[in-house]
């Protein structure tokens, strides 16, 4: 009852955030302009004026993308924290984000050559390949260890090592990069939603829907896993299958979103904790609430990143960390029965 009303509250907040994100910016848009823009695009097909064009081709896809990416990151956080039974986990920790950063850096250094191979979406494809390779090597190294049983803790430690390798390779690449390329690498590592368009929104929405579905399908097993791996096995959960399913879901959610918008840190870590503090503890409810709250928070962060020193944009990863961290510190210091 209380949990359901919280989820309704998050839903309303997300609508409000989406609306604000469409209205606020370098150019202020009115409600009438938004309405005209939608009706012209959907029904009459009349030519759009400048403001209507800004709404339908820039603001609206960007607002939606921020929401969808935020939702994906937060669900990834719920899943990975659940899998590792560890409150310190960020969803990208098993190489998914740092691999993407490495792929992107590789693109920035050699874009002239690569663009001829993949003429379309070169950067996200490079980033996603990096993300996939890093995640696969983490899981591959871990499961090739025949001697001892491959445990979840080992998977986490392998992930941290793969992360370190990827980040040092990114370091090497930026060391050899010339100035504009090096700047691109740095900024990509801080995230940006400026490239939003309808194709990206559609792709990320599709991955969010698939990821959300898979997360909810595994929710009961993740709940059982919280008792421990041995106990979950005794409850009939197939641990290895569950682990693979969660990692695949995570790559779909985090790998693809990161490939389009760059690395956005901290969100996937804090959203699940905030929700637990509010008493939302079951995985299924956590997934739904994380989607709504994660989306809302990233949408609001994007507004801040656009207006704080307009017309210049601050990379969104800076906003999520700089505003998110103090709020998070405040939350963990408040007395609360449910906050770990």
């Amino acid at each position: 009852m209380k949990k359901n009303s919280l989820i309704i509250l998050f839903f309303l907040a997300s609508l409000l955030a989406l609306f604000l994100s469409c209205v606020v910016g370098a150019v202020h848009l009115s409600l009438a302009e938004i309405f005209n823009s939608i009706s012209k695009t959907l029904f009459s097909g009349n030519e759009l004026n400048l403001h209507e064009n800004i709404f339908i081709n820039i603001r609206f896809p960007r607002a939606l993308l921020s929401f969808v990416v935020g939702a994906s990151l937060a669900i990834g956080g719920v899943l990975m924290q659940g899998l590792f039974r560890n409150p310190l986990i960020e969803p990208g920790l098993i190489g998914t984000s740092s691999g993407a950063a490495l792929g992107a850096s590789f693109y920035f250094l050699s874009s002239n050559i690569l663009a001829t191979v993949f003429p379309y979406w070169t950067l996200p494809i490079c980033a996603f390949i990096g993300s996939l390779l890093a995640t696969l090597s983490t899981t591959g190294i871990n499961s090739s260890n025949e001697k001892s049983k491959s445990s979840t803790t080992q998977l986490l430690l392998t992930g941290i090592a793969v992360n370190a390798i990827c980040m040092s390779l990114v370091g090497i690449l930026s060391f050899f990069a010339r100035d504009p390329q090096a700047r691109s690498i740095t900024f990509w590592g801080l995230g940006s939603l400026a490239s939003a368009n309808w194709k990206i929104v559609t792709t990320c929405t599709l991955t969010l829907v698939i990821g959300c579905f898979m997360a909810i399908k595994n929710a009961k097993s993740i709940d059982a896993l919280q008792l421990g791996e041995k106990e979950a096995f005794l409850l009939g959960i197939r641990i290895k299958k569950l682990r693979i399913s969660i990692i695949v879901t995570n790559v779909i959610l985090i790998g693809i979103a990161t490939s389009f918008v760059g690395v956005i840190s901290f969100l996937g870590l804090i959203i699940p904790h905030i929700l637990r503090g509010l008493g939302i503890l079951q995985t299924k409810q956590l997934v739904l609430a994380a989607a709504l709250l994660g989306g809302t928070v990233l949408c609001l962060s994007d507004i801040v990143s656009r207006i704080i020193i307009a017309p210049t944009e601050i990379p969104i990863g800076i906003i999520t960390a700089l505003l998110g961290a103090p709020i998070f510190i405040y939350l963990i210091r408040t007395k609360n029965e449910f906050l770990a």
Partner: peptide, 23 residues
């Protein structure tokens, strides 16, 4: 029932007991 069950995240007592019927 194994020994020393370690739980990391907050979880309601009701939800722990329900896991007994998960299978």
């Amino acid at each position: 029932l194994t020994q020393n069950i370690q739980i990391q995240f907050p979880i309601r007592v009701r939800d722990i007991i329900s896991t007994g019927r998960f299978p």
